[in-house]
Structures are given as C-alpha cells and as structure tokens.
C-alpha cells in the first residue's frame, strides 16, 4: 500500500476514528494523540494488511489497542466529555428539557472500558455486532452481553442523575 493510498483510506475513516476515541477517553488532545499513534502504527503495518477484514475494522482495532496500551502504560484517567455542544443537544426522551448530551457522556464515561467501547461502536459509529467483535477481539456473544449490560448501566446512571 502506497502512502497516498493509505492517506486516502485513512482520511475517509479519520473523523469517525477521532470521534470514537474522543468519546472513549474524554480528552480531545489525548484522543487525537492516540489517533495519530494508531494511524502511524497502521501505516507501518500496512504491508501486512491483506484485506481479509475491512480497512476501518482493522484501523479501529489498532486504535482501540493503542487506547488500551496508553491506559495501562500511563494510568490514563478517562473522563466524561465536556464540550460546549454538550449543553446544547436535548435527548429525544427528555421530558423536562434539562436532559443533556453531557449527562449521556458522563454516564458512558463511568462504564468499564470494553462496555463503553462496545456501546460507542455499536450505537455511535453504527458498526454491526460482528465488526464490533472483530475490533474488540472478543466473541459476538460477549458484545451482545456488553451492549445489554451497557444499556442497563447507562439507564441506571441517567435515572440517578435525573432524580437528583
């Protein structure tokens, strides 16, 4: 794979990869740094990419592993995402109009890593269960279990906040 080919493939995935990492770790600078590392690692390993998996799956898997490495190596703390946009978007089931985007990300930020990653990939990035399983390197059944548990956890957290 030439550098131009790689860049064109990476550009197509860039936004969704950065969004996923941003939601995963909560810090925009850290997320971009992980994305850069992941893309460089992918470029170095691009000779071994045979197209058995989709490029995006392969890239997301590398990025997720980079995130895990960083988490283990630096004892990075994931934090809920706080952006100006966080206050602006009301949820569809917001009855009092005070339910914010920020609440959702705070709730997601408190989930275990794999659960959080599974939820984000499935719901935010719209990836099928099979692909999520390939990215997280776990069986599809485990992904379904993570999704069920994750949904339940998010629901519990949100209800707790709403009652405050």
């Amino acid at each position: 794979m030439t550098r131009e080919e790689f860049i064109s493939l990476a550009t197509a995935e860039q936004e969704s990869l950065r969004r996923f990492l941003l939601s995963l770790c909560g810090d925009p600078a850290e997320a971009d740094d992980i994305a850069q590392d992941a893309l460089v690692n992918a470029y170095v390993a691009s000779g071994s990419f045979r197209g058995a998996a989709r490029f995006s799956t392969w890239l997301f898997r590398i990025a997720y592993n980079c995130f895990i490495d960083r988490l283990r190596g630096r004892k990075m703390q994931t934090s809920p995402l706080e952006t100006p946009a966080a206050q602006a978007v009301p949820g569809p089931d917001a009855t009092d109009g005070r339910f914010h985007h920020e609440d959702l990300h705070r709730a997601i930020g408190r989930l275990p890593d794999k659960e959080r990653a599974a939820l984000l990939l499935f719901y935010m990035e719209d990836k099928p269960v099979k692909e999520v399983a390939a990215i997280l390197e776990i069986p599809a059944g485990s992904v379904r279990a993570y999704l069920t548990r994750g949904r339940q956890h998010v629901k519990e957290y949100l209800e707790k906040w709403k009652t405050r």
């Binding site: 860039q14 966080a86 949820g91 959702l104």
Partner: peptide, 23 residues
C-alpha cells in the same frame, strides 16, 4: 440519540498536517 449527541473532533486540517509529517 447517540448520533445526535456525538462529539465533533477539532479541525481536521491540523490533524492531517501532523499525520502527514509523522508518515
């Protein structure tokens, strides 16, 4: 709902420039 509340990453231009330099 997730799609609506998805965060938007910062300007892609500087990201791409840095990526090109690293590559």
């Amino acid at each position: 709902f997730f799609r609506q509340t998805a965060p938007t990453p910062a300007d892609p231009t500087s990201f791409t420039l840095e990526l090109n330099a690293r590559l």
